[in-house]
Design a protein around this nucleic acid. Structure first.
Lengths: 318, 318
DNA sequence: AGCCTTATGCTACATCTGAGCAAAAGACCC
DNA sequence: GGGTCTTTTGCTCAGATGTAGCATAAGGCT
């Protein structure tokens, strides 16, 4: 094992030559966060128990990382992914129990598909119980916050900094709750030993939500964070909707993903002025109230908005 | 080479078991986009000719990808990186001439350092000549646009779509020029064979800017795009400024990075109301006009704004 | 002193955003 | 059939934000 500085330097200098890479040979793996709506709930495709994200090796036949992910997700599960985007690459030394160092390139994929060939759709909020704030008052204080604050106070040196992170991430005092900070929240809970996968976890009081294999819950949090941020400025929600839908269904989807309610009238105004949808002419009657018009995503905007973006009002809660 | 579907499936099923990854063993490499300001120009650290980005192998002694990048950039060049963030992971089959498949994890690093131990600071705009719009009228049409439009027209099927991408990326007609779309612009130029590294490049008329080794120009474009987007909502400019500066110097830096001018008064208002800086009490007299007050970055905001963000008005040109 | 330059302060105006009121249109109940 | 419920849909309004221009301050220079 070349761990001495001298050897490390030698390897670097070799690298500088641009010819030979004398680095470690590692196995490259693809990790997929595949998201779909099932019965109005946002779900992620998982395998086994404890749940893990579907993963597969990079093979010589794969043209690219993206192609690799798409190919085997589709083959393995029979799902077709409408949207696929690289998330982050993980290769920390301690993330594998078996001593190897798999380098995992994670992807976020969206689909409208139903039953997968293998695996199950797992509700996000079974894994991140504190992330669903729908129906809660906007000044709702998460029960985890006291435990977090206690953790912050336990280290006088870091007190202010930790306090700051908690305030912002969990939307305390003047800060709003921001759905896309899910990864920050997870990391705080991890550091505060409030999730079971923390080294020093206290089983008596933990955040609501089941653990996953390895660091997969972190990877999933990364994916959810990206998706929550992205629905605000790219028309990706539609990758999760069936072809015809009412504006209420669309809104429900956005609310389910972001975990909080939005202002109905403003939501519709935004959708309309962005010209994201067009009427199909149909109506849906069983809404429990006035029948709703049916809409369809204007596929044409994909070409434009892939680059420039759109705005959905997912910011504040009611 | 296991290219048959059966073998591929076998490998996947093995992966599904969660035990053994029978994937390809690859070498993992780190690619660094190290940015600094030199004499008011935005520059990137490059080695050799044609220029390439500094790269180094992932070694067993490195705790994480980020640590690896930081460690060897600092050792190799003597530069200390104030900011370091993962960009993207590249592993396309055709990106290496030598047949191997290096998997390259790219990072964006910012520094205020001066002369590097090895390598040189290369001005961005020598590599992306069309990206500097300072001093040009806001309705300026890039001379590349006709060639791009011709390319768009050459394929009747794809005409509309290409036209759309060009319009948005290059800020034609109603669209504004958006600095952070540099990667989109580069990709269009690549597809239109207007950069020398394109397979079918026509040497007679090319976009202004030297080529780099391999796909490094694409990686650099990714880094610049990230940085240009990021200065708008995170206080990262200060990682490129020396400790004391005038507001004009700060504005010059932002303008150099984004490649276009901003409205001075609004810029200052934004800086002030965000409380990003504090006066040092000093003044700088050789401004050519009224002396300017000196400011210093309020380091405290880093703790807050790392999470929540700030706003700099880099949007429109004058 | 008068003119140059840059720095700095302030104001007008269009736009966006968040939030509420109210009418429309069906279901349901009596 | 009328009243009441629900959800859908249209509209208004105030505050925040973004864009752009005018005006003054404060130095150097001739």
């Amino acid at each position: 094992m070349p761990t001495s500085p001298a050897l490390e330097r030698a390897a670097i200098l070799t690298a500088k030559g641009g010819r030979l890479m004398s680095g470690q040979q590692v196995s490259a793996e693809l990790l997929a966060v595949v998201v779909a709506m099932q019965n109005g709930a946002p779900t992620v495709l998982t395998l086994g128990e404890p749940p893990r994200l579907p993963a597969g090796p990079l093979l010589p036949s794969h043209r690219s990382l993206q192609a690799a992910t798409r190919a085997w997700v589709e083959e393995q599960t029979g799902l077709s992914l409408g949207f696929l985007e690289q998330l982050y690459t993980f290769a920390d030394l301690d993330r594998d129990e078996r001593g190897g160092r798999p380098i995992s390139v994670s992807y976020l994929g969206l689909t409208t598909a139903g039953r997968p060939g293998i695996g199950v759709w797992t509700n996000w909020y079974q894994l991140f119980g504190w992330e669903d704030r729908r129906g809660l008052p906007s000044d709702h204080l998460d029960p985890l916050v006291p435990a977090l604050l206690a953790w912050a106070e336990s280290e006088p040196e870091l007190r202010r900094q930790r306090r700051q992170r908690i305030d912002i991430s969990f939307g305390l005092s003047p800060h709003p709750w921001r759905p896309e900070l899910i990864l920050n929240r997870y990391e705080l809970l991890y550091e505060a030993a409030l999730v079971p996968e923390s080294p020093a976890a206290d089983p008596s009081r933990l955040a609501p939500g089941g653990r996953m294999a390895g660091d997969h819950r972190r990877v999933l949090a990364t994916g959810i964070a990206r998706l929550r941020a992205k629905i605000g400025y790219r028309p990706v929600v539609f990758e999760l909707m069936s072809s015809d839908f009412t504006l209420r269904q669309l809104q429900d989807c956005v609310e389910a993903l972001s975990g909080h309610e939005v202002h109905t009238q403003n939501f519709r105004r935004m959708i309309e002025q962005q010209a994201l949808v067009e009427e199909t002419g149909g109506q849906l009657a069983d809404t429990g109230g006035r029948p709703a018009r049916l809409y369809r995503f204007r596929r044409q905007v994909l070409a434009e908005r892939k680059v420039v973006g759109t705005k959905l009002p997912i910011s504040r809660g009611r």
